[in-house]
Amino acid sequence: MEIAHDAVVAFSKSWGLFYLVGFSLCVVAYAYWPGNRKAFTHAKMSVLDDDDRPLGDRPLGDRPLGPEA
């Protein structure tokens, strides 16, 4: 199968643009989605937690939350 050079150029100049714009809109929507705020804040704070043990079977709420609490 021969892929013509012009066809590749046309494809990348049109669909390449659209999918990247669409993709970036999705990323921004995901980052700013109000429902995600809680998870992001938790993740951002949880690395500061000095509890240096795996959680194992302990439930998630059973540990000090650090500065977040």
Partner: peptide
């Protein structure tokens, strides 16, 4: 904590 967690996600995909 990191200044902006959202920004870190956007720059990751960027």
């Amino acid at each position: 904590p990191i200044f902006s967690y959202r920004l870190s996600i956007i720059s990751f995909w960027g």
